[in-house]
Amino acid sequence: MRRHCAALIAALVLGGCATPSQDLVVLLPDKEGKVGTVVIQGQKGNAVLNTAYAKARTTPDGGVQRGTATQSEVREVFGSALAAQPPRPISYTLYFESGNDEFTEQSKQEVKGLLAEMARRKAPDITVIGHTDLVGPDPSNDALSLQRAERVKSILAGMGIPADRILTAGRGRREPLIPTAEGVSEPRNRRVEINVR
C-alpha cells in the first residue's frame, strides 16, 4: 500500500514537472463582428490568429498548435474574465457656434447625453480631445486643438465634473472627420471629441 502511494506521488510530481506551462489564446470577433490579428510566438513555433474563435495552444516542446475554440470552451475557461470586462468607452462629438464659445444646439443635447452616461458609470473618467481642420501645419494645429480641449474641460468642470477626472488631448489635424484637401476650412473637422470610460 505504502509503495503504491509512493508510486502515485512520484507519478503526480513527475507528471507535474513533465507538463510545462501551456498557454491558450483565443481570438474573438469585436462588437461589430470584425476580427483582428494576434501573433503567438512560442519558444520554437509561432501562429497567426486572424479568424473568429481561432485558437492557439503552446505545446510542451515549445511549439504552437492551432485550432478552433467552441463557445462553451470560451465560457468555461474565460467566463469570469469576460464578465469583469469594463464597460466600452463611448465617444461624443461637440461643435461650437462659429465665432463664439457656445456649443451648437445639437451639441448641448450631446452634453446632456454625456452627463447621463457618466452618471450611469462607476467612477468614470473622460478624455477631451480637440481636433482641427487641414488648414496650417501640425505644430500650430496641435496647440489649437489642445486649447479647444482645455476650454471644453473648463466648461465641463464648471458643470460639476471633477477636473481630476478629465484628461485633455490635442490631436491636431491627424484625424479629420471629413477627409478634405490640404488647406480646406471644414467646420465639421473643427470639433471636440469626448471619450467616456
Binding site: P20, V38, Q43, L49
Partner: peptide, 12 residues
C-alpha cells in the same frame, strides 16, 4: 511560454 503581438482587437 510565449509572446503575443497584438494587431487588434479582442482576444483571450
Amino acid at each position: 511560454s510565449s509572446i503575443l503581438g497584438v494587431r487588434g482587437t479582442e482576444f483571450l
